[in-house]
């Protein structure tokens, strides 16, 4: 498995892979000892198959709420009510929050 990841990193790293011929790609795969289904998935640019072979499903990638939920009771936003311990935690830019 790790040789597959290393191979992907190598391809991601360098411009020469953009328009590589199938023959050269086959050679590079052989040099990296990548065989069988991994080899065909990469040759066919079959990302879905590669995910299956590496036992990966699509991760969740949301990291922001559209609308912030209220804080749970007792919790306090750092930076509020003069609780600052360090001036570096002041927001760099101030702006109007919700009305």
């Amino acid at each position: 498995m790790s040789n597959v990841i290393q191979f992907l990193e190598k391809v991601g790293n360098a411009a020469q892979w953009d328009d590589v011929t199938e023959g050269k790609l086959e050679l590079a795969l052989a040099e990296a000892d990548i065989e069988g289904p991994f080899r065909s998935a990469i040759l066919n640019k079959d990302v879905a198959q590669l995910q299956v072979l590496l036992q990966q499903k699509e991760p969740v990638c949301f990291v922001i709420p559209g609308e912030e939920e209220e804080e749970e009771e007792g919790e306090e936003e750092p930076g509020e009510k003069g609780q600052l311990k360090d001036a570096r935690c002041l927001p760099r830019v101030r702006f109007a929050s919700r009305s």
């Binding site: 990193e9 590669l50 995910q51 590496l54 990966q56 991760p59 990638c61």
Partner: peptide, 11 residues
């Protein structure tokens, strides 16, 4: 780590 592709997590 929090990434949007499982293969990237392996990397």
């Amino acid at each position: 780590v929090l990434v949007s592709d499982g293969i990237i997590e392996l990397w």
